[in-house]
């Protein structure tokens, strides 16, 4: 386990080396999500049957911006390692490549999320835009954080692993990232979608990556429904982890140390 901690700390130091880059990469997406606030504020002010108040819209997108780093990652390095044959360096050492990758990505996600929480959360409180819900709601929303990260990483690394068969897979990964962003409710609250879509969406993993924890933090979702959502996300995580392990093993059979 210690070796994975070392990878985590080394990645942590790497992230902090290029501070301007870190700041821009963190706030480009946060900025994009926050700009959506203006779009939906304009929409809801023109909509007579509006279900979202002004402060609710603002807090929704601020939380969305905060949580976004947990599900937004680009494991291109897995694709490079497979394509260029660099994977060999892990295969000949007593370290799991997937364990290495997840430790490496965790550092970046932790730094980016903390940066946003430290800046945006006090702003919300100072502007009096958010009334904290019960402690149970906050704790449950916090439990979602590692699951969101693990699910997103498993899902995206699963796509990257297909590099064993297709030399370039980034376009498919990007296409799925965009779809994920849409279905998670990062840019549109799921409650704005038609009811039939909402019913199906509840049993898929995506809305639990953003919409569900945000509604918990807003106190707009009950704890039992939150727990049910957490269970659904955990089941999907297990399914995707098993699927990834299977595909990884199949891919390794296909792999030659000289690269593909």
């Amino acid at each position: 386990m210690q070796k994975y901690w070392l990878v985590f700390f080394s990645s942590f130091q790497d992230v902090l080396t290029y501070r301007a880059d870190l700041f821009l990469s963190t706030f480009k997406y946060a900025g994009m999500v926050l700009m959506m606030t203006f779009v939906w504020l304009a929409v809801e002010s023109s909509n007579p049957g509006s279900t979202f108040s002004q402060s609710e819209t603002i807090t929704y997108f601020v939380f969305s911006a905060m949580l976004y780093s947990l599900s937004n990652m680009h494991p291109w390095y897995i694709e490079d390692d497979i394509r260029l044959g660099h994977l060999t360096k892990y295969l000949v050492k007593p370290i799991s490549p997937l364990g290495y990758y997840v430790s490496f990505e965790t550092a970046k996600v932790v730094v980016e999320t903390l940066m946003k929480v430290v800046i945006l959360l006090p702003a919300l409180i100072l502007l009096n835009a958010w009334t904290p819900p019960s402690l149970q709601h906050i704790l449950l929303a916090t439990v979602f954080a590692p699951l969101i990260f693990l699910f997103s990483f498993t899902f995206l690394s699963l796509i990257s692993i297909f590099t064993f068969w297709f030399t370039e897979i980034y376009s498919l990964r990007w296409a799925l990232t965009s779809t994920n962003r849409f279905l998670a409710g990062t840019l549109i609250p799921i409650s704005f979608f038609p009811e039939a879509f909402q019913n199906v969406s509840f049993y898929l993993p995506f809305q639990h990556l953003a919409f569900t924890p945000i509604r918990l933090l807003q106190g707009e979702m009950t704890v039992p429904v939150g727990l049910q959502s957490l269970g659904i996300l955990a089941v999907w995580l297990i399914v995707f982890t098993l699927l990834r392990s299977f595909i990884w093993r199949q891919g390794l059979r296909h792999f030659e140390g000289t690269g593909l």
């Binding site: 023109s46 980034y170 965009s178 849409f182 979608f193």
Partner: peptide
């Protein structure tokens, strides 16, 4: 495979825009 990303992104952006106009009527 590489031509997938562009349409997916544009489709997502259109989906958001369409939903926004459906809710507001006028923006």
């Amino acid at each position: 495979l590489q031509i997938l990303h562009g349409p997916a992104y544009v489709g997502m952006m259109y989906g958001i825009l369409s939903l926004a106009f459906d809710r507001a009527g006028e923006l």
